[in-house]
Simulated scan of single mutants.
Amino acid sequence: MTPHAPCPADPAAFTTEGEDRPSRWLVTCDHATNRVPGWVNGGDLGIAAADMARHIAFDVGAMGLASALAARLGAPMIASDFSRLVIDPNRGEDDPTLLMRLYDGTVIPANRHADTAERERRLDRLYRPYHRELARLAAAHPARAICAVHSFTPQLRGRPPRPWLVGILYSHRDERLGPAMVRACRAQGWVTGDNQPYSGHLQGDSIDTHALAHGRPNLLIEVRNDLIRTPEGQQEWAGHLAPVLERVLSDSGL
C-alpha cells in the first residue's frame, strides 16, 4: 500500500442517492456533514462542539435540502461526508484555503501544524474519492445540468445581518441559468442575492471542475440556514425551489 492510499476500512467519503433517477439534473452538496474521521487527530479537530455544529464546519441544513430537492426533481444526488474543516471539497487542490487554520474567528488546532503529508493524506482519502464519484455521476447523463446546494449563516461575527433568503451564484463564464434563476426567485417574492453573499466563481471549485470545464449548465443555490435547520424547512424549500429550477432550465432551451 502506498503511503497515501485509501484505507480499505475507511468509511466512504461521500453518500449518493437516486443514481437511477432519470432527470438531467445532478444535485450536489459539497459541505453536507461535520464528520471528522477517526484517523484525523483522533476524530477531533480541537474546537468546541458548538463550533462544530455551526456553519464553519458544514452547511447547516444543506444535506437535507439537497436530498429533498433531488427527490422532487427525480435527480441523483451526491454529498460529501466529511467536514469542510478537515479539507474543503469546494476548493481547488492548490487553493490556500483548502485546509483552513482560522475560520470566522475560530482557530482550528488540528490544522495549525498540518504538513504536506497530512494534506495529501486527506486529499487521497476524502477529497479525491468524492470528486471521482461526482465526476462519474456528472458524466452519466449526456445532457447533464448541475445544481450545487449550499447554505449560509444569517450573520457572520462582527458583521451586519444578511438580508437574503436565497442566493444564486454563477460564474461570469456561464450565465445561461444564473441570472434567469435570480429573476425567477425574485418573482416569487424572495429576497434573492445575485452572486451574493458570495462570488459565483472560484477557480478550481466544484462547479468550475465539473460543470464549467465540460460546458454543463449549472448554478449554485445558497439558502439561509435558519430557514432549513429542520426537516420541515428543508422539505418546504425543496418544494419551493424544484419547480423554479425545472422552469428555468426548460425556458433556457439548453
Rank of each mutant, 00 (worst) to 15 (best):
W25T: 00
L26R: 00
L26Y: 00
T28D: 13
C29P: 06
H31Y: 00
H31M: 01
T33Q: 12
R35Y: 08
V36T: 03
G38H: 13
N41W: 10
D44G: 01
G46I: 11
A48C: 08
A48N: 12
A48P: 03
A49V: 14
A50P: 11
A50K: 04
R54T: 12
H55S: 05
A57F: 04
F58P: 06
M63L: 15
M63N: 14
M63S: 13
L65W: 02
A68N: 11
A71I: 05
A71G: 14
M77H: 07
M77Y: 02
A79M: 13
S83A: 14
S83V: 13
S83E: 10
R84P: 05
L85Q: 00
V86R: 08
P89R: 01
R91A: 05
G92I: 04
G92H: 00
E93K: 10
D94I: 13
D95P: 09
P96T: 15
T97S: 15
L98E: 01
M100C: 10
R101P: 06
Y103C: 11
G105Y: 12
V107D: 01
I108H: 08
A110G: 05
N111L: 14
H113L: 11
H113G: 01
D115V: 04
E118V: 11
R121V: 14
R122V: 08
R122A: 07
D124Q: 15
